[in-house]
């Protein structure tokens, strides 16, 4: 049997909101260590990787070595509309069961339950290599969200140029060119901090459609971390409640190549 209780149900709601427009069906891989999910979007341009450690849950039980729960994202986000912001969530599945039961509770006054039919999803075995990035940028999620949204008004692609001292986001579109520079700002109050760590400068182009999709996960944490390398995918990482010990939602994106 699998059973997990999360007092802050909105965390799961935010995770699914961050994934739903990229992937239609995903497997929840449950083990005694927590929950993992890995999926590529249908065009194989980006990859989503979720890790929820048992620390994020108030209760966590998985009797088997592993269980694979196939979920349709549209149905799951529909179900999570039932979940109020202060509700706790309990997920429960029998070992050979064909459903995953969600219970949303606010105190004892209101209890909602939905049994979701599980799917059998063919999933490819994908691996994420341990990667050291030439450039790491930690910036407020609100800033990331705003930059991606504003830049999308001018073009389809955004260049991220990361150098010692700061990072420049720029767009070159039909109506003209624009750029936003964020200075390395380690000594300001936490919510405004921008940390740019550079071993070697990197400049790469990315599709704003995907960067904007990743921004939907912004409510999960205060800061987002970008990892850039000239020869590996961009990593966009949201730690759950800014605590890596609880887990993370990561997105990987292939750069655009000049033809």
């Amino acid at each position: 049997m699998f059973e997990a209780v999360l007092s802050n149900g909105s965390t799961l709601k935010k995770i699914f909101e961050g994934i739903k427009d990229l992937c239609t069906d995903v497997n929840f891989d449950v083990s005694s260590e927590g929950i993992k999910l890995q999926a590529m979007d249908s065009s194989h341009v980006s990859l989503v990787s979720l890790e929820l450690h048992t620390d994020v849950f108030e209760q966590f039980r998985c009797d088997r070595d592993s269980m694979t729960l196939g979920l349709n994202m549209k149905s799951v986000t529909q179900i999570f509309k039932i979940c109020g912001n202060d509700d706790s969530v309990t997920m429960r599945a029998e070992d050979e069961g064909e459903t995953l039961e969600f219970t949303f509770e606010k105190g004892e006054d209101r209890v909602s339950t939905f049994e979701l039919k599980l799917m059998d999803i063919d999933s490819e075995h994908l691996g994420i290599p341990d990667t050291e990035y030439q450039c790491n940028v930690k910036l407020p999620c609100s800033e990331y969200q705003r930059i991606c949204r504003d830049m999308a008004g001018f073009g389809d692609n955004m260049t991220i140029d990361c150098q010692k001292g700061g990072v420049t986001f720029s767009v070159d579109g039909e109506v003209g060119k624009g750029k936003i520079f964020l200075k390395h700002q380690p000594n300001v109050e936490e919510k405004h901090k921008v940390i740019v760590t550079v071993k070697e400068g990197v400049e790469l182009d990315f599709a704003l459609r995907y960067l904007n999709n990743f921004a939907k996960a912004a409510p999960l944490s205060d800061h987002v971390q970008l990892g850039l390398n000239s020869d590996t995918p961009l990593s966009v990482r949201f730690d759950i409640e800014d605590k890596a010990t609880l887990g993370s939602l990561k997105f990987f994106l292939a750069p655009k190549i000049k033809e």
């Binding site: 341009v45 490819e124 691996g127 994106l253 292939a254 190549i257 000049k258 033809e259």
Partner: peptide, 14 residues
């Protein structure tokens, strides 16, 4: 023009 590269081979090989 810009071409969108693909991640499939990268993660498949890992």
């Amino acid at each position: 023009g810009m071409k969108q590269s693909n991640l499939y081979a990268f993660f498949k090989a890992a």
